[in-house]
Amino acid sequence: MSKILIIIPAFNEEATIGSVIPSVKKEMPDADIVVVNDGSHDKTSQIAKTLGAVVIDLPYNLGIGAAMQAGYRFAKSMGYDIAVQVDADGQHPANQIKNLIKPIEDNKADVIIGSRFLGKGEYKPSLARLVGMTVFAKVVSFIIKNKVTDTTSGFRAVNKKVVNFFSSIYPDDYPEVEALVLLYKAGFSIMDTAVIMDERHGGKSSITPIRGLYYMVKVLLAVFVDTLKRIEREA
């Protein structure tokens, strides 16, 4: 039986964290849950603690990449075999976590991405968003020489080797997309699998339509810079 850790990064998610934790617990009773509270100003941390999750309270808002990495560092220090990233806003359905873990346990890949575009999901992004996501998917698939359909999905499971890698190297700015390039450069295998995602329960996407194009250019720039980086994977 592998030791599984569910990492939930949260910044001001008091509206949804209270329903996310119990649903994960219900679906994954043997897994541990760690909430990385990235300097929230609301009751996120208290709610998560009351619900029995381990909470890492960061001293100030570090940003999604650094918060996620804190979760991976926790996973490494506690010796977990598998870590799963789940958003605190409730868009990642807990009943799909098993589908992400299965291929990791079967040693099919080092990283499994839950894709909203594979299979029978009802996911309908706006046209602008769809264009952006398609561009990312094409560019990243080309760079990593492997077809990935949903590069911005933060619903992922990784094995122990990747936990160790992420503990030392994790991108800061656009971690979902950038991490794929870094993983490829470090020689990890990446696979995607179909998941059905809910609409966001609370809060809103960090990407507003006006900033969409600007965001896309920034991410692509970051991705190209990543392809130039020298990545050393520790033994």
Binding site: P59, Y60, A66, A70
Partner: peptide
């Protein structure tokens, strides 16, 4: 960043 993460982990 490393220090802040470490503080969080140690607090926990």
């Amino acid at each position: 960043k490393r220090l802040a993460q470490e503080i969080g982990l140690l607090r926990t």
